[in-house]
């Protein structure tokens, strides 16, 4: 017993190092597996609050470009609204969600990140605004990612620029689909893999979400085909997709809730 205590006292620095290094490695391994990071994330009171107050100031620097983007979207939606014969009656608000399968929430990105291989963003909406895990996040131009952890006021988003993320997407022209992954290199270019060889891909084709998952609705734009090649087995395409979104400059985003998600998941898990 005496010797054990002596050993511990003599090597206390080394043992402390081993313990703390082991703890950090456990956190690291957790962060590399999807939806597993438990303790250390930025959606807490302290880091969320600091990012939020700094973002209140830095917002002003790209106010002009963001306004431009939003007014362009307004313009597009207005054109859509007035050219289709939908009855617009602003005095009538439908408080029930009958027949609606997707619900949208607005949010602001308060921490952007694109230079790592596993990028995680932070938005200023949380459980208080009924944001939960596995809601989709998009901008006016394309998809951004999927909600991971929520605290009361903040949520972290697994960016599409994350090597652990995988989203079902396909060609707009045909119905063939594959999964969208990132190789960790260029923040403008993302990879679409496992597209069947008979899909007849052409350069410049538009890639949209496939609607196969319960997260994103069908047809949300992602990007265009930059180039493509067959994989080793020559049964599938590997496509480089140029994103519509500029992931380095994100501000206003929409969070999508699929109202039928639970039902779909229950059915799939049966």
């Amino acid at each position: 017993m005496q010797q054990i205590i002596n050993f511990i006292i003599r090597n206390k620095n080394f043992l402390l190092f081993l313990l703390l290094f082991f703890v950090s490695i456990v956190f690291t391994i957790q962060s590399h597996s999807y939806h597993k990071s438990k303790f250390i994330n930025s959606a807490n009171f302290l880091s969320g609050g600091i990012y939020n107050s700094v973002n209140n100031i830095s917002d002003y620097f790209n106010l002009k470009t963001q306004n431009q983007l939003l007014s362009e979207e307004n313009n597009r939606l207005r054109a859509l609204l007035f050219n289709s014969n939908i009855n617009i009656d602003s005095t009538f608000t439908d408080t029930l969600s009958f027949g609606k399968s997707y619900k949208f929430y607005t949010a602001n990105i308060i921490k952007n990140s694109y230079s790592l291989t596993d990028n995680i963003l932070l938005i200023n909406r949380g459980k208080k605004d009924s944001i939960k895990q596995d809601f989709g996040v998009i901008t006016t131009q394309g998809i951004v990612g999927i909600i991971d952890k929520s605290s009361t006021r903040y949520s972290t988003v697994i960016s599409i620029l994350n090597t652990t993320s995988s989203i079902s997407a396909g060609l707009k022209r045909t119905i063939h689909f594959g999964s969208l992954e990132w190789d960790g290199k260029d923040p403008q270019i993302i990879q679409l893999i496992d597209v069947p060889i008979n899909a007849n891909v052409k350069e410049g084709d538009t890639i949209v979400t496939s609607g196969q998952s319960s997260i994103f609705p069908k047809g949300i734009p992602i990007g265009t085909v930059l180039d493509f090649k067959n994989d080793i087995a020559e049964n599938f395409y590997e496509i480089n997709v140029k994103l519509f979104n500029d992931m380095t400059n994100l501000e206003h985003v929409y969070v999508i809730e699929n109202m039928h998600r639970e039902e779909i998941n229950n059915l799939l898990n049966e």
Binding site: L20, F21, V23, F27, S31, S37, I40, N41, T156
Partner: peptide, 20 residues
């Protein structure tokens, strides 16, 4: 740093290693 950057424990591990 890891908490702010959502990077798991990579900064903690590297720092502990260097400190040792």
């Amino acid at each position: 740093i890891d908490m702010f950057l959502d990077s798991g424990g990579i900064h903690a591990a590297a720092s502990v290693f260097v400190a040792y």
